[in-house]
């Protein structure tokens, strides 16, 4: 573990990381300006470009340009190429969740569900609080937030009691999603973090982040009760 320093000049060690972040933004901006790519796609296209440049400059610190280029090509063809499938579980899990969510959105009658909820005459605050906790609890029983948030947000936008408050719906969905991606063992972020840290997704999501996540949701509930 590196020693903790109070010397500001020691921050220079993180300059290359700052350059990578700035390069990502710059290349993404350039791609968005020059092509018809969506912003998110431009960021994802710029990731391999910046990665290649980053690896090249790692070699270039101690070697010539030609040698660095050869080593970069070798790194991609003999190392990274064969390591790509190590993300197999995350890729299949993520793609499967998206497919389930999209299929359910296509076939479920969300309008009917919204009408049934409207008949119950529940207050707007209670509907939003219930929705938030349903998404949170659903994530704990392996229903990915990508599925539950998509379905719940569509239903909420059609409810007479909350349909005129899109900003509040967006706030509830964003906060809940942010809480869930930090605490549910089924989300990609928790799974990748757990893999890097060397612990189980359950340990990372529930034991480390569970209490904090529940407190954030309670704070959201309180906000909704006071404001609505």
């Amino acid at each position: 573990m590196p020693a903790i320093s109070n010397n500001l000049s020691d921050l220079k060690v993180s300059f290359p990381i700052a350059i990578v972040v700035i390069s990502l933004a710059a290349v993404s901006g350039l791609l968005m300006y020059m092509t018809s790519l969506r912003p998110i796609t431009a960021v994802l296209v710029s990731a391999p470009i910046v990665s290649t440049a980053w690896i090249f400059f790692q070699y270039h610190r101690k070697r010539s340009t030609l040698s660095s280029m050869e080593l970069t090509v070798r790194r991609f063809t003999q190392d990274i190429f064969f390591k790509m499938p190590l993300q197999r579980s995350e890729i299949v899990f993520f793609a499967g969740s998206v497919l389930i969510g999209r299929l359910l959105l296509t076939v479920l009658d969300i309008e009917w569900f919204a009408q049934q909820l409207a008949h119950l005459n529940i207050s707007a605050a209670l509907i939003l609080i219930t929705s938030s906790w349903i998404i949170f609890l659903a994530a704990l029983v392996f229903i990915n937030p990508m599925i539950s948030v998509t379905l719940v947000a569509r239903a909420l936008s059609q409810l007479p009691s909350v349909e005129n408050m899109p900003v509040t719906i967006a706030l509830v969905m964003m906060v809940t999603w942010a809480v869930v991606i930090g605490s549910s063992p089924t989300t990609t972020s928790v799974r990748i973090s757990a893999k890097i840290t060397g612990i189980s997704p359950f340990h990372m999501g529930i034991k480390w982040n569970g209490l904090y996540s529940a407190l954030v949701l309670l704070a959201l509930d309180l906000y909704l009760i006071v404001m609505l």
Binding site: L44, P48, S51, I80, Q87, I91, F94
Partner: peptide, 14 residues
């Protein structure tokens, strides 16, 4: 979404 993870994976490797 598969494309998303592949692209981020390359950044992680670097």
């Amino acid at each position: 979404f598969a494309f998303f993870l592949i692209a981020l994976g390359l950044l992680k490797e670097a």
